[in-house]
């Protein structure tokens, strides 16, 4: 047990592949040429636009129209990035960070508490009904609820604030977070709770001293997923804010396109800048995730 608890902290895992299996592994999958072809073809489909975004963002806007679109920049320049940053990009970036953190942290904390209650109170009919409600929530599309959400936000006097984006985001992130966390909590051996309780620990203590450290990998999953969703969210900022001051990344990228018009390299620089934090978060999250899952419960 001791190694289990220590593992998620101490042992960084450097690879993203599942635990070592001989490379031949499933021979049948290895010999499937059609799937192999699809794999390499899809890599091209994915990479070509991404490659184009990155190289173009380093091209001078005057070169953009003269060079071959796929040639690397002959005179690489940071001018586009400078232009984007001079146009309040940092401000929008901070807005997005505030909204993402302001959504992710409450979501994870509230969902962990709810998941804990659901798992520990599994025999109670009330909690089972609450769980059912959260499950149903997975099916509520944000678009369909947006008009009443708009009404609520106006009535609460939150219109055109960052909180107006964060609060509904929390509500719509909670169902999946509860589902993932409760599935994970259910795998913690009952004896651990029992023995802690016999040591005199209350539920609140067990939540933070036992459930919290043991569900870390699941919490990272939930946090990364929620963070990415909110960072990329478009409808809530579009409907619930109006002043340029409150713009988040996707709205900013959209308005840059209107603003820079034919200066495609500058528009793409804003796309790159808006995406980098997500790629970083994903990279970190993925490592934690894999180490947690492979070291965790060996399930």
């Amino acid at each position: 047990m001791a190694t289990l608890l220590g593992a998620t902290v101490d042992q960084p895992t450097e690879r993203v592949t599942p635990p070592p299996t001989p490379a031949v592994g499933r021979g049948w999958a290895g010999r499937n040429w059609l799937a192999g072809l699809a794999g390499w073809f899809w890599l091209l489909v994915v990479l070509i636009p991404l490659y184009w975004i990155v190289i173009t963002s380093f091209k001078a806007s005057s070169d953009y129209y003269q060079q071959n679109a796929f040639a690397p920049p002959s005179n690489p320049t940071l001018a586009n990035y400078r232009l984007v940053i001079e146009n309040d990009f940092v401000h929008y970036f901070v807005n997005s960070v505030v909204v993402a953190v302001g959504t992710t942290v409450p979501t994870v904390v509230l969902a962990l508490m709810a998941a804990y209650a659901i798992v520990r109170g599994a025999q109670s009919g009330l909690l089972r009904r609450i769980q059912g409600l959260f499950l149903m929530g997975l099916a509520i599309p944000l678009q369909a609820a947006i008009i009443p959400v708009y009404l609520l936000i106006i009535k609460l006097g939150l219109y055109d604030s960052l909180a107006a984006i964060a609060i509904p985001s929390i509500a719509f992130a909670i169902p999946l977070a509860v589902l993932v966390l409760s599935n994970f909590l259910r795998d913690i051996p009952r004896d651990l709770f029992e023995s802690m309780r016999l040591d005199g620990a209350g539920e609140w203590t067990m939540l933070w001293r036992l459930a919290f450290p043991l569900t870390r990998p699941a919490m990272v999953t939930v946090a990364v997923y929620t963070g990415v969703t909110v960072w990329n969210g478009f409808l809530l900022p579009l409907v619930l804010t109006q002043s340029p001051d409150r713009r988040t990344m996707p709205l900013a990228v959209w308005s840059f396109q209107g603003q820079f018009q034919v200066n495609v390299p500058a528009v793409l620089a804003s796309v790159v800048l808006s995406t980098v934090p997500i790629v970083v978060l994903y990279t970190i999250g993925r490592r934690q995730l894999v180490s947690g899952l492979s070291e965790g419960f060996s399930k």
Binding site: A114, A117, G121, S124, I147, P148, L152, A171, P175, E203
Partner: peptide, 30 residues
């Protein structure tokens, strides 16, 4: 135990009911 643990679901439930379930009912009313 159930009584002692149930309250922990309340904050998440409240936010979820107010900003996701209520709007779904609300859209029908609207």
């Amino acid at each position: 135990q159930h009584g002692r643990v149930a309250w922990m679901a309340v904050p998440a439930l409240a936010v979820f009911l107010l900003f996701a379930v209520l709007p779904l009912v609300g859209v029908l009313v609207l």
